[in-house]
């Protein structure tokens, strides 16, 4: 479909006004909202992800594309909700208790939103209980935690324990990241995923959502 291909191509270019206009036109043409989402907006974002990974484009380009995607989503969202099409999902995000560093966490938030996720950003210095409560309150299937200090990393394990105690482990998945955090540490404390940078975190969250859906 020409309009969807054009939409995807413009999204890759970060042309938000053009993507907005093409989304409106696709809706007027009577295309199913799910198809506009999958073959237009998400197809464009998938291409952006590939280009970013092989260094053909850079972070600002990804974020411009994300902005363009959101411009299209504004028109599409009410229709998707009305038709009961599930959105990509919601992620609760925060820097763990004792940690006031939030640059990395914010970047993950920006990238997740760009990829079409809803983000509930709890900010920094977030206690374990707050993560769990927010995930329940917002029906978020994923909790993302960030730490920059080795001294605050253990808080991540306390969130995992709390989910287990409350019988939520498995239903609410966890992902962690941050400069001192490693894949090995993630395995040791029993979280579901580890993202080594913001783009990688988005990929991992997608996988978590897929396993959730399955």
């Amino acid at each position: 479909m020409a309009v969807l291909d054009e939409m995807a191509a413009n999204l890759v270019q970060g042309a938000d006004e053009r993507v907005s206009e093409l989304t409106r036109r696709a809706i007027q043409d009577g295309l199913p909202p799910k198809r506009i989402l999958d073959e237009g907006l998400l197809a464009g974002m998938t291409r952006v992800g590939e280009l970013f990974k092989c260094h053909e484009i850079y972070l600002p380009d990804v974020l411009m594309a994300a902005q363009a995607m959101n411009a299209g989503l504004e028109h599409l969202k009410p229709l998707l909700v009305r038709e009961g099409v599930p959105m990509l999902g919601r992620v609760v995000l925060g820097s763990v208790h004792g940690d006031l560093h939030d640059i990395g966490k914010n970047l993950v938030g920006v990238m997740l939103r760009g990829a079409g996720f809803e983000v509930v950003d709890l900010g920094n210095d977030v206690p374990p209980e707050r993560f769990v409560e927010a995930a329940q309150e917002h029906s978020a299937p994923v909790i993302g935690m960030s730490a920059l200090l080795t001294t605050t990393m253990p808080v991540m394990g306390r969130v995992v324990n709390l989910l287990q105690q409350r019988g939520l482990a498995g239903r609410i998945k966890t992902i962690i990241g941050g400069a001192p955090v490693t894949e090995k540490f993630a395995r040791e404390i029993g979280v579901d995923a580890y993202g080594y940078d913001a783009a990688n975190a988005v990929e991992r969250v997608k996988s978590l959502m897929d396993t959730q859906a399955a």
Binding site: L59, P60, L63, Q67, V110, T182, E183, Y196, D197
Partner: peptide, 27 residues
């Protein structure tokens, strides 16, 4: 990251080396 000022100047302000230079995090 996507301010007009950034978009206008980052390519000339920041030199991005090719793939031979490693700037990835360890993971």
């Amino acid at each position: 990251l996507i301010s007009k000022h950034t978009r206008q100047h980052w390519r000339s302000e920041h030199f991005l080396p090719g793939r031979v230079i490693d700037r990835a995090n360890r993971s």
